[in-house]
Simulated assay, not measured.
Amino acid sequence: METTIRLNGKLADLLGSDAQREGVPVDVLAARRLEENVLLWRIRTAAPEDETRELHRLLRRQKSGTLTAKEREQLLALIDSRELLTAQRLEDLGALARLRGLPVRELMNQLGIRPIPAS
């Protein structure tokens, strides 16, 4: 699918200058920047806050031994969902690192993402 986007004024000038500096056509740079923004958005919104709060609440109940059977099902579903989101986030981090020509660890440092320590 091909889409045409018309840019006016300062934004067009800025994108043109950046493309010239990087030695790529404007459309290539624009596509790269759009892809980067989509990846960044997905990386930063991988885990909804309300879902994270509920996951932590259920984990605390499990640790205290007060988890009901229904809550256990909910916890397992949240863990499965989180594993899928985490896998997608890792793929997105890898794709963004490749676009920027960086090692994944360096990109994670730039974005303020810290790996979870192994327990």
Rank of each mutant, 00 (worst) to 15 (best):
Q62G: 02
R42P: 01
E49G: 00
D18V: 11
G65M: 09
N37H: 13
R6C: 02
L59G: 02
L39T: 03
V38D: 04
K10R: 15
E2T: 15
T45P: 00
R33L: 14
V38E: 08
I5P: 03
G65Y: 10
R53P: 00
L11Q: 10
R44Y: 02
A47T: 06
R42C: 02
R60Y: 00
D13I: 07
L14H: 06
E51P: 01
V26R: 10
T45E: 03
R61S: 06
V38F: 09
G23E: 10
E54K: 11
R33P: 04
G65Q: 10
D27R: 15
L39Q: 02
L14I: 11
L58G: 07
L40R: 14
A19C: 13
D27N: 15
T52Y: 03
D18N: 12
Q20S: 08
E54H: 05
T45H: 14
R32T: 14
K63F: 03
E22I: 06
T45V: 00
G23T: 09
S64P: 00
A12N: 11
Q20H: 10
E51A: 06
G16I: 04
P48E: 01
V26Y: 04
S17L: 13
P25K: 11
A12F: 06
V28H: 02
G65E: 09
Q62W: 04
D18W: 09
L58N: 01
T52I: 07
G23N: 08
K10Q: 14
G65W: 07
R32Q: 15
L29V: 12
R32V: 06
W41E: 05
A46F: 09
R32S: 13
T3C: 07
R42F: 04
D13Y: 04
I5K: 06
R32I: 11
E51C: 00
A30I: 03
E2V: 13
P25D: 15
E54C: 01
E22D: 14
E35P: 05
E49A: 12
W41N: 05
R44Q: 13
D27Q: 13
R42L: 08
D18L: 15
S17C: 03
Q20D: 08
V24T: 02
I5S: 06
L59W: 02
E54D: 04
L14P: 01
D13S: 15
I43D: 03
A31K: 07
L11V: 13
R53Q: 12
R44L: 11
L39W: 03
R21P: 02
E49D: 07
E35G: 12
L59Y: 00
D13W: 08
N37V: 05
L40M: 14
R60V: 04
E35H: 12
R33E: 04
A46Y: 08
A30P: 05
T3N: 08
D50F: 04
L58R: 01
W41I: 01
L58I: 03
K10C: 06
I43C: 09
S64K: 12
D18E: 15
R42W: 05
A46M: 03
G65A: 07
T45Y: 05
